[in-house]
Design a protein around this nucleic acid. Structure first.
Length: 464
DNA sequence: TTTTGAGTTGTTCGA
DNA sequence: GTCGAACAACTCAAA
């Protein structure tokens, strides 16, 4: 009689290297079943689905080479996982932890359920540098300000060594039932809006390693100075790889730390810190997925303006830097961080559309859509979050464009209507004697919008 | 308990 | 053109 196999439940840890759940399952000694469930209880944005398809493809190929193909299923993991465990006679289940409120609820129920059936369950930290439930300020409460959070984190951080990728996996002798990748229907059908994604992204573990190497070789040495320039290839573009766990934050931290100890390295590691901080905040304040962390912001006189929202989504606001960003998002599934801030600020402050509406759009269109980072960042921009930008800090989309895209290269790349506009006018084309045909005038005038937002925020202060 | 210093990413105005 | 101050007060973290 063959021994009871072990299940490795892959979720957002789609890698073979530095994967503690996988390592532990192998060390357990029994045959290993690698499983991915497309959980129908999860909301997954369109761009994320595209990425997931290709990431699963890569992981599946890697696992097949090791001797244990990835088994795919679809359904409510809450119910499906115990069924599969039962059907396959598994003796142990291993997974790496997730930290969003819904994931925690599902996983803790599942863990109790499986243990009650006599199944061994072990879970690991593979996705964060800091366990949110084990990091507190000296008063014993959760940090709400980034700088002390990260400073304390750096002092306490102890990174365990990398788990090397396994060389071989022992699979159960009987074939197991499952779906094919195409059965999951993750790719867009007509129209195939993801065509532009294929040339710039390489989902999967190899692509993640390549992104990190490319960043270290080309951009790290000038990161602190150039990270805000969307016209330069100055960022790592690791965010989607990290979201799906194709590379571990610990490996990134160790690698950067080893090659660079100047302000560029520290600045980049602090960006990992912001990712940590977002997950940390969401863990301690789970209501922030829908509610403003500063409750008075839920009484802000938000506008419902579908026409303006549509113009923002499609990159037709008349402000070139905002429109370039929104079109970069639509055509590539990604947007440069600086431009995310400008575009988000425009929606929330100029158009006074609720941050939740913007967060929904980003969740659907970003390949790196990550609940924690998305929510924390939108609340930060709106001024409703932890350690947030003060309300009077309203980005001027013209100045921001001129400062961070000085030659208009970024704008021209994504807004072809402006190809022939000279540099001096590229961020204010409506001031040309003959504005370019086919590009809209600003849907709202900056000065008036700023004044409106400031007075609305001032009212908020009085009411509170 | 009270106090103190500090807090990612800006803009505008007026000297 | 450049520079400093105002924009507002509040909350957090640590001593």
């Amino acid at each position: 009689m063959s021994p009871a196999p072990s299940l490795v439940w892959f979720r957002r840890d789609l890698r073979l290297s530095d994967n503690p759940a996988l390592s532990a399952a192998i060390a357990h000694g029994a045959p290993v079943i690698p499983l991915f469930i497309l959980d129908t209880d999860d909301d997954l944005g369109g761009a994320s689905r595209w990425w997931l398809h290709h990431s699963l493809d890569q992981l599946g190929q890697g696992l097949s080479k090791l001797g244990a193909p990835l088994i795919l299923h679809q359904g409510s993991a809450r119910h499906l996982l115990p069924e599969l465990v039962e059907k396959w006679g598994c003796g142990a289940v291993f997974w790496n932890r997730l930290y969003e409120p819904q994931s925690i609820a599902r996983d803790s129920t599942l863990k109790a359920d499986l243990k009650a059936r006599g199944i061994k369950v072990e879970t690991f930290n593979a996705n964060l540098l800091i366990e949110p439930f084990a990091h507190f300020n000296k008063s014993g409460g959760p940090f709400k300000v980034f700088t002390p959070f990260w400073k304390a984190a750096l002092e306490q951080m102890s990174l365990v060594p990398d788990h090397p990728a396994p060389k071989h996996l022992l699979a159960p002798s009987d074939p197991l039932d499952g779906l094919t990748l195409n059965d999951l229907q993750l790719l867009p059908r007509k129209p195939n809006w993801a065509k532009g994604f294929e040339t710039i992204w390489q989902p999967g573990e190899a692509g993640a390693d390549a992104s990190l190497s490319r960043f270290i070789a080309n951009a790290l040495k000038s990161y602190a100075g150039e990270r805000d320039r969307p016209d330069c290839a100055s960022t790592s573009r690791l965010s989607p790889h990290m979201h799906f766990g194709e590379i571990s934050p610990a490996r990134i931290f160790r690698t950067i730390n080893a090659v660079c100890d100047d302000r560029n390295g520290r600045k980049f590691l602090a960006e990992l810190g912001w990712r940590e901080f977002a997950h940390y905040l969401l863990f301690h304040f789970p209501q922030m997925t829908t509610k403003s962390l500063r409750p008075e912001f839920d009484h802000f006189p938000w506008e419902k303006d579908d026409q303006a929202l549509h113009a923002w989504q499609k990159g037709l606001t008349g402000y070139p830097i905002v429109d370039a960003g929104m079109r970069e998002l639509w055509t590539t599934g990604w947007m440069h961080n600086r431009v995310r801030m400008i575009a988000a600020s425009f929606l929330v402050k100029h158009l006074m559309v609720p941050w939740q509406t913007g967060a929904d759009w980003f969740a659907d269109t970003l390949v790196d859509a990550d609940l924690a980072s998305n929510i924390a960042s939108w609340q930060w921009v709106a001024g409703s979050g932890a350690d947030a930008a003060p309300y009077f800090r309203i980005f001027n989309p013209i100045l921001q464009g001129e400062k961070f895209d000085p030659n208009g290269d970024y704008v021209r790349k994504f807004v072809p209507e402006l190809a022939d506009v000279p540099n001096a006018f590229i961020h204010r084309p409506w001031t040309l004697p003959k504005p370019p045909a086919g590009y809209p005038s600003p849907i709202i005038e900056h000065g008036a919008a700023r004044a409106r937002a400031l007075s609305a925020f001032a009212e908020l202060g009085k009411a509170a």
